[in-house]
Computed example of a mutant assay.
Amino acid sequence: MISNRDNISEKVYLLSMFQQNYVVSSLRKLHLNSLQARSLSYIFHHPGTIQREVADYVGKKQATLTNVLKGLEERNLVYREIPKNNERQKNIFLTAEGKQLVGQVNIIFDQLDEKVRNGLTKEEQTQLMINLTKAEKNFKEY
């Protein structure tokens, strides 16, 4: 009989908890939470995106993201622009301050990735990615 600690799902859970604690602790120094940081990072990689796309990426409802974006706007990290051809839509961009802060956020996520990869050979990293992608697909239909 396998104890709970020997289950793959338990190992994935523990790794996830370690990652969350690392990210929360690191982002706290930037006065950000994980949702704000992931939103900034998405906007950085998709300038001019719309709120629905950011909400889909972070896995939250648009109403929740509205509050996140309002807070980021108040901190002068993002701004919204209404395009002339669609007055119902608002495109979201980073301010100069937002771009500077997202650079620090990306460093944190890069350091996190390095912690996960540390001690694994390139082949082990590749195989881990393949296996995790396969496992992830089991939840796509869920």
Rank of each mutant, 00 (worst) to 15 (best):
M1I: 10
M1W: 13
S3M: 08
S3Y: 13
D6A: 10
D6E: 12
N7M: 12
N7V: 09
S9C: 02
V12T: 12
Y13C: 05
S16D: 06
M17S: 11
F18M: 14
Q20M: 11
Q20C: 15
N21D: 14
V24E: 12
V24A: 05
S26P: 14
S26K: 03
L27V: 09
L30G: 05
N33Q: 02
S34K: 13
L35P: 15
A37I: 03
S39M: 00
L40W: 02
I43G: 01
F44I: 08
H46W: 11
H46P: 05
G48V: 01
T49A: 11
I50F: 08
R52W: 09
E53R: 12
Y57A: 12
G59H: 06
G59M: 08
K60M: 10
K61S: 10
A63H: 15
T64V: 10
L65Q: 09
T66P: 07
N67D: 00
V68W: 08
V68A: 06
L69V: 06
K70N: 05
E73Q: 07
R75V: 01
R75S: 10
N76H: 04
L77R: 07
V78S: 01
V78P: 04
E81M: 08
K84R: 09
E87R: 12
E87K: 15
R88W: 04
Q89A: 02
K90M: 00
K90I: 00
N91P: 04
F93C: 01
L94D: 07
L94T: 03
T95A: 03
T95D: 01
T95V: 01
E97G: 09
G98M: 05
K99P: 11
L101T: 01
L101Q: 04
V102C: 05
V105R: 07
N106F: 01
I107E: 04
I107W: 07
I108C: 03
D110C: 06
Q111L: 06
Q111T: 07
L112K: 12
E114N: 13
K115D: 00
K115R: 11
N118V: 10
L120T: 04
T121Y: 10
T121P: 07
T121S: 13
K122N: 03
E123N: 13
E123A: 05
Q125A: 09
T126L: 08
L132S: 08
T133F: 05
A135N: 11
E136S: 15
K137V: 07
N138M: 13
E141G: 14
E141S: 10
Y142L: 11
